[in-house]
Design a protein around this nucleic acid. Structure first.
Length: 631
DNA sequence: CTAGGGTTAG
């Protein structure tokens, strides 16, 4: 047995960690095995060899079995850490991505300062990327600028890893100007990462024009460049642009990867572009991209939001091993949107049997499922469970669900009491839920009282005016309607324009109210006429109570006639084979007239019509709707 | 050793 005790190295070690010196550490696979080696090295004294210590530290800090606390302890046992060990511990702390990343990043900076104080080894080009990363995470620009000076003195600014992390540090501190100066003075055209960091920087600043310009002018685009643009567009609500980018990248020779799919799926979900979503699913399977919990959650959400709840459940069931709270929220939220409250409740209990504690988002899903289905008692006990069993503090969204749950079920006083007693300041959403319930149950007094309050608090939000007007209209108070309309005109407040769209062969066709810009406008127009005649022949009478404008009855009927969802349906009917289901997405909620006429259209034309409105899905089939008219 | 990601009341 080798019993030599190695002397600590002075200043810089002549040794570099290499597989030839301690191959057993490099070959080590498990944490258990590593501990055995560690113990053995202590016994033999080899632990004092700086390279041995560095190798062990590397395994503890950076392997898949990493254990940051063990690494901290181990580091304090190293008598004279070499540069590799310093770099390793700093990197381990700066890389940590869990809840304590803030503390860890601070600690990384402290280790760096210890390294300088220690004075035995100097930082090098491997040290700075990690220290800069810590600064970036903490958004500490002062320390970052000091590092910049230090790096310049050592002549390391031109190192591509140092430079891109320096630029990234400025980006994460919101200092795009400094980032820009570095980027342009360096002109490392070949460094794709540097470009990507800059593009990401503009995305983070919300300046998509600037990031797009940079993207368009970059000489070589990597898959990450595309991913940054796609997720940038998707996260800022530019869903169409995100999808356009996704298509464009395939014209070039860059293949989408796992992150691309995760980035583009939310955009597909929001637009309800089922064909494209299915294409992405096939792409993942063909290219053997693993559908793990993260990508799986994105697919579950996509299928739910595109109206295919069955496929959502299928994907969900195939994510066998590692379902996390987000995966469960996605499926529960999906079932809720489709009105499958019982299934959502089953899932809620199922996840707990699977040993996953529900997150607050899961409760939002379950509670909204209960309110859409009128399951008051179930909703109450879920709420009780959240507060008293799991111990979560209800957020405004949970109160919103409870107000909606009670309100829809006609327990208006209880709902109002809940608002008055809740410990958070109620927002407009909560009041609108209650107003909706008042209208539904004909409590005009309470509804008006709250709508007026709302108009005082949010004088520029069209929602409260529309709610009040609808309420007057539902009791036939046309004078009231006219007054609200006048006030809106005075204050220059406009109702959000209604907008619906339908995807055909991967192309999204969008229609606004009274839209006649579509290439097939004529065909659509005559189809609308035909539908209207068919409806009349089965005794249908338009329900004009929700028409906001002060028009005569005939004009009102014609306004209804051109609601965007009706135009989209007419277009769908003339553009698809008989019996093809139609999937429509609408930006607002369905009005009552559209709801009842679509029911009839589904019967007359023998079509399944699946409409996603602002809140949920309506599956129309053979004259009735899955929401059972409770929505 | 550098860049990119999933769920959320009406």
């Amino acid at each position: 047995m080798n019993t030599t005790i190695y002397k600590p190295s002075t200043s810089t070690s002549p040794y570099h960690p290499s597989s030839s010196l301690f191959p057993q550490i490099r070959r080590c696979k498990t944490a258990r095995h590593l501990k055995q080696i560690h113990a053995h090295f202590i016994k033999t004294g080899q632990i004092h060899h700086p390279v041995a210590a560095a190798e062990i530290l590397k395994f503890i800090s950076l392997s898949s079995q990493r254990d940051i606390n063990y690494a901290r302890k181990f580091f304090t046992q190293i008598h004279h850490p070499n540069r590799f060990s310093w770099n390793t511990i700093i990197r381990a702390l700066a890389d940590s991505d869990d809840d304590s990343f803030h503390v860890n990043s601070l600690e990384a900076l402290l280790y760096f300062s210890d390294m300088l104080t220690d004075g035995l080894v100097d930082p090098n080009k491997f040290t700075f990327p990690c220290v800069l990363k810590a600064c970036a995470k903490l958004a500490r620009i002062q320390e970052g600028k000091q590092l910049h000076g230090f790096i310049a003195k050592l002549g390391l600014v031109s190192d591509e890893f140092v430079l891109s992390n320096l630029v990234r540090m400025y980006v994460m501190c919101g200092a795009m100007k400094d980032a820009h100066v570095l980027f342009y003075t360096r002109r490392l055209e070949g460094n794709v990462v540097l470009w990507n960091v800059m593009i990401d920087g503009y995305v983070r600043m919300g300046d998509l024009t600037a990031s797009r310009e940079l993207f368009d002018s970059m000489p070589n685009k990597s898959v990450v460049s595309w991913n940054v643009m796609i997720s940038g567009y998707a996260q800022s609500g530019h869903f169409k642009e995100a999808i356009e980018m996704f298509r464009d990248m395939q014209v070039g020779d860059v293949s989408p990867n796992y992150v691309t799919l995760v980035s583009v799926l939310p955009a597909i979900s929001r637009l309800g572009a089922l064909d494209l979503g299915e294409w992405v699913h096939l792409y993942a399977e063909k290219n053997e991209i693993e559908i793990d919990d993260v990508l799986g959650s994105a697919f579950v959400d996509m299928y739910s939001k595109c109206g295919s709840i069955d496929k959502a459940v299928q994907v969900f069931e195939r994510i066998r091993n590692k379902k996390n709270p987000i995966t469960w929220s996605a499926i529960i939220g999906g079932l809720a949107m489709h009105g499958q409250a019982r299934d959502a409740l089953d899932c809620f209990w199922g996840m707990q049997q699977a040993g996953v504690t529900p997150s607050d988002v899961v409760y939002i899903g379950v509670l909204s499922a209960c309110s859409h289905a009128g399951l008051v008692e179930e909703g109450r006990s879920v709420y009780y469970h959240m507060v008293n069993v799991v111990g979560l503090v209800p957020r405004i969204e949970h109160y919103g669900c409870m107000v909606d749950l009670l309100g829809r079920a006609g327990r208006l006083e209880e709902a109002e009491q809940l608002i008055l007693n809740m410990p958070i300041k109620p927002d407009d959403v909560i009041y609108k839920a209650l107003i909706g319930a008042c209208k539904m149950h004909g409590n005009i007094e309470m509804g008006q009282r709250i709508a007026k309050k709302l108009m005082d608090w949010y004088p520029h939000d069209s929602g409260s005016y529309v709610a009040l007007s609808n309420m007057f209209a539902s009791e036939g108070n046309w004078e009231g309607v006219a007054k609200v309309r006048l006030k809106m005109k005075d204050m220059d407040i406009r109702k959000d324009p209604g907008c619906s769209w339908i995807e055909l062969d991967g192309v999204i066709h969008e229609f606004l109210v009274e839209d006649d810009f579509h290439p097939r406008a004529e065909g659509i127009h005559s189809m609308l006429e035909e539908i209207s005649n068919q409806l009349r022949s089965v005794g249908y009478r338009p329900n004009t109570t929700q028409v906001l404008l002060n028009m005569d009855e005939k004009e009102k009927q014609s306004a209804l006639h051109y609601h965007s969802e009706k135009i989209a349906i007419a277009f769908g009917l003339i553009s698809t084979r008989p019996q093809t289901p139609l999937r429509i997405v609408k930006n607002l909620r369905l009005c009552e007239d559209c709801h009842s006429s679509i029911k009839l259209v589904s019967k007359i034309y023998n079509r399944k019509i699946i409409v996603r409105d602002r809140r949920r899905f309506h599956h129309f089939e053979n004259g009735s709707c899955s929401c059972m008219d409770y929505w």
